[in-house]
């Protein structure tokens, strides 16, 4: 299956329509902003979820409250 085979499947009118059309700068901007926003948001969320879902971190000596200071 080659590109030539693929293009041969299209009518001359369709080929002309497609060849004269392309992704404009406005399209690039909308596409990058939309996809970037969604992918960025999902990545941030997954990172947060993974970080928070990890088993509790080991506490250092300084964090351990022995309650021996209480009256």
């Amino acid at each position: 299956m080659t590109t030539a085979w693929f293009l041969a499947q299209l009518t001359a009118e369709q080929r002309a329509e497609i060849e004269n059309y392309t992704l404009h700068p406005s399209g690039w901007i909308v596409m990058i902003l939309s996809i970037g926003f969604v992918v960025g948001l999902l990545t941030w969320c997954i990172r947060r979820v993974m970080r928070e879902s990890q088993p509790e971190k080991l506490h250092g000596q300084i964090d351990v409250d022995t309650h021996d200071a209480e009256p």
Binding site: E19, T22, L23, H24, G27, V30, M31, S34
Partner: peptide, 10 residues
Amino acid sequence: DAGLGFMWNM
């Protein structure tokens, strides 16, 4: 890119 243009171009 023509297809993407149709979907995303203003």
